[in-house]
């Protein structure tokens, strides 16, 4: 593969240093209106940027101490994290916080200066609906398989999965399965690639892949690749770089990435880069953002693109991190 890529034109090579600079610049854009409009995603954004940097082989590009300080400044008394100081605690930002602290190996700081692992675990476990097994995003009750996966992801990293009713949660995921092999937001909802990732990853963390109809799911997922090489999220929708992660990681978990054209997908992701100013967009020629950047890079890592750190397909974190914490 390395040889093939050496002959490619510039736009089809990964613009690593441009991407690193782009991610580093994200927190300096305080004179842009969008910077303020997206504060509710700050902690998620930090996780996306940090993960991309680690996969790009530049873990040092964001200062570790400041990263930890910021994460801890988002924590509430109840253990949960908000998106930024002053924002309410939510499952999504709490999961990002745990992933960031795991990646920079700072659970000890959470114990020493934060509210401690146990309190985080208690917050997450408190969001499980004990009747149905699924999880809410926060105290206001919105339920979605995204939150269930988030809970499994963070709790397993913290070694606290026993705080929740795993079997009930697994039953709930199984109830979200559709005839096409995919999974939706909740029982009865249409199959959707993002939701499939959350359900398949949750079942993988629970050690219950036996419940997945791999043949049927693999077919559905492989049909997500369109002529341009990119992947879409549902039948008859447009391709989008972020599905390079949701679809591909799901295929990886069920051992079927060879059911799509990997080289074409690599070209699609690479042609969605801004090679000059850095960052990756949803499709070639569109505005870049850190969300598409991390999922593009993570997709390339799963596709064994040369020079990238391996990514864990279940956690969307560097494999070295999940190996250290979970022995995966």
């Amino acid at each position: 593969m390395t040889e093939t890529f050496a002959q490619l034109p510039e736009e089809l090579k990964l613009a690593t240093s441009a991407h690193v600079k782009y991610i580093q610049s994200l927190d300096t854009r305080k004179d842009e209106y969008d910077y303020w409009l997206t504060e509710h995603l700050r902690l998620n954004g930090l996780y996306w940027g940090l993960t991309a940097l680690h996969l790009l082989g530049h873990p040092e590009a964001l200062p570790r101490a400041e990263t930890i300080d910021f994460v801890l400044s988002c924590q509430h008394e109840n253990g949960g994290f908000g998106a930024a100081p002053g924002h309410d605690a939510h499952m999504l930002s709490t999961v990002s916080a745990v992933q960031i602290l795991a990646t920079v190996d700072a659970f000890d700081e959470l114990e020493a200066r934060g509210k401690g692992k146990a309190q985080v675990g208690k917050y997450i476990a408190g969001l499980q609906n004990r009747q149905t097994g699924t999880f809410a995003g926060d105290e206001w009750g919105e339920e979605d398989t995204r939150f269930l996966y988030g809970a499994f992801n963070a709790l397993s990293l913290l070694g606290l999965l026993h705080l929740v009713d795993v079997d009930k949660a697994v039953d709930h995921v199984a109830a979200c399965a559709n005839f096409d092999g995919g999974y939706g937001v909740s029982p009865g909802a249409e199959s959707h690639s993002g939701q499939i990732f959350t359900c398949v990853a949750a079942l993988t963390i629970a050690g219950r892949q036996d419940l997945i109809d791999k043949e049927r799911l693999g077919r559905w997922l492989s049909e997500r690749q369109v002529a341009a090489g990119g992947l879409n999220g549902r039948p008859e929708k447009k391709e989008d770089v972020c599905y390079s992660w949701w679809v591909l990681s799901s295929l990886e978990m069920i051992g079927k990435t060879h059911w799509i054209d990997r080289d074409k997908l690599i070209s699609f992701i690479l042609s969605s880069q801004d090679t000059e100013k850095g960052g990756i967009s949803d499709r070639p020629g569109d505005m870049v953002d850190v969300w598409h950047t991390v999922f593009g890079v993570a997709g390339l890592s799963l596709l064994n693109y040369p020079g990238l750190e391996p990514v864990d397909e279940v956690y969307c974190m560097p494999k070295s991190t999940t190996a250290r914490i979970l022995g995966r």
Partner: peptide, 13 residues
Amino acid sequence: MAEQGASHGIART
């Protein structure tokens, strides 16, 4: 997981 922060279909300028 929180798609709202992403730009979709907006031309790069």
